[in-house]
Amino acid sequence: MSEELYDLETSLPVNPVERFLRMDRLPHIWCPGCGIGTTVNCFAQALESSGLDLRTTAIVSGIGCTGRVAGYMNLDSFHTTHGRAIPFATGLKLANPGLKVVVYSGDGDLSAIGGNHFIHAARRNVDMTVVLINNATYGMTGGQVAPTTPMSAVASTTPYGNFESAFNLPALADSCGAVYVARWTAFHVRHTTKAIKEALLKKGFSFVEILAPCPTLYSRRNKLGDGLAQMLYYQENSEVRHGAETKDVALGFQGKIIVGKFVDRERPTYHEAMDEYYTRKLGEQYVHAVVGGA
């Protein structure tokens, strides 16, 4: 076929999520079978269906495999330090409440080294969406045990199996005051997309946990097969239970996975509470912050 008959530039269908990605940064670094890319696709579709202004949407990541997501999104994107995406995002949001701020990072980043910031941002109800990709291990550094590694699972630093209790992250977010809490897996792409969209449109601290396979490290060490095998596990063992008590959704090694939307409630955000309180206390003397000013 000659170039005159078939113009590659105009004839190839454009991937609908292309405009959300920094195409000049591809290919990405994730392994074959890794679930993170799938969640990014869901995130991009959620951005599209949410109707958010991309110009005022910012993404903040920490460090690790999921920490690389910010660098692939065609948004104002910040790749910060290990565990500190949430406090960076807190500063970003409070300094410009007009921004939609998304934190996108991994289980180790957000719940181990960043656990303190996670609970305080939820407590304050800082208006941000936190998407946590839970692959049950530290992928970037070679598959060490994480606060999310299920009991008995093998990791490079638990060669005989893990004997620590894992976090139940929806329960943690719920108990600290998150206004939206959902869990899905990389298998549930439509539910995940819908949940991220709902979280993006929810005012306050919204939290979506997405289970994702790490075939290279977690699955291989635990003899769980490839990425597809873990997707089949998600398919066969997930039970949708919207409104479940978050205390009942803890995860065990290759056990049942309770998925769904667990929390959806209203609370004043940090910024609303601050504005309302100062307006009541100080009246006309209270000067609202304006954007910029440096």
């Binding site: 903040v60 104002d76 910040f78 910060t80 330090t81 500190r84 406090p87 960076f88 995002a89 807190t90 500063g91 970003l92 949001k93 409070l94 300094a95 410009n96 921004l99 303190n116 910031h117 305080h120 940090y270 601050m274 000067v287 609202h288 912050a289 304006v290 954007v291 910029g292 000013g293 440096a294």
Partner: peptide, 26 residues
Amino acid sequence: GGVFIQMEDEIASSIAIQGAVWAGKK
């Protein structure tokens, strides 16, 4: 017209200010 937040620790404080800078504040 300023925003002060008492963070959960100094680690958080020292990066929250950087988020604010990238949103346009000193």
